[in-house]
Amino acid sequence: MMLSMVKALNDGMRRALESDRRVLLIGEDIGRLGGVFRTTDGLQKDFGEDRVVDSPLGEAGIVGSAIGLAMRGYRPVCEIQFDGFVYPAVNQIITQLAKIRHRSAGAVCLPVVIRIPFGGGIGSIEHHSESPETYFAHTAGLKVVTCSTPQDAHTMIRQAIASDDPTIFLEPKRRYWAKGDVTDAPDLALDKARIVRSGNDITFIAYGPTVDTTLQAAEAAEAQGHSVEVIDLRSLSPVDTETVVDSVRRTGRALVIHEASLSHGMGAEITARIQHEAFYFLEAPVLRITGYDTPYPPSRLEHDWLPNVERILSATDRSFRY
């Protein structure tokens, strides 16, 4: 069936709620309103206020209470309304959620999912367009994943809910309304990257909102005579190093594309892994096309700031000039 990512996520959560009575959703405005993006539309009506919980306005409370619910045997799925509003919950996420399994030597399991709409490109105001993935990917004990298609949204949200590890689930909000075919068959484990386009000359590595842009750039590069492989990373922690390295060993060139700012970002981590495991296969340095090291700019400037097809093509040219 053809579904938008919002509808795919909604259906994925509906199925999780149906199949396991311990699953519950908790967040601001997710019940009566159905979420500001309508991701949870209709779920409170069908599953009740005890299972689709309209929370008070407090992000630490959302995550802190989810931890307590998980200790009691529940599998809470939290919604943080926007990327830039997750920070009040960061203490609970980093000092508690990520560490309690470790602290308890495995006695306490916290299957908590934190859904966060993330990334820019929707012309919004401050705090509504950020890419906070590295904060979480750098925190041991968390899994961090992101989907780029309705199919992956549908599959991955259920896999995240089924996972016994706390999982940050990043949703590329500017891809929320794009439709795609969704089937029921999960074809890939949650921690695996996906080769979404095969090629021989260069590997483009992207995730979440930049996958679509990167695929467009790959088409354009093809027209210029370069055969491009595109990898959708999907899991940011852990990273599927094998899929990335195998590809770069074949192509000898790589670009990493993300919206988050450059320094200390996912691009740095991916680049380090490539140079460590594919050093002798490289024809050029790994290049990064990312947001700049500034706070997210006013929305009138965001299309210059976000990685776009032109910047990816320009970096492709630089790679081939080596």
Binding site: G61, V63, G64, S65, G68, M71, R72, Y74, Q92
Partner: peptide
Amino acid sequence: TLHAVGYAMGV
């Protein structure tokens, strides 16, 4: 204190 609250929600 928030963990206690969540646990109580489960109760």
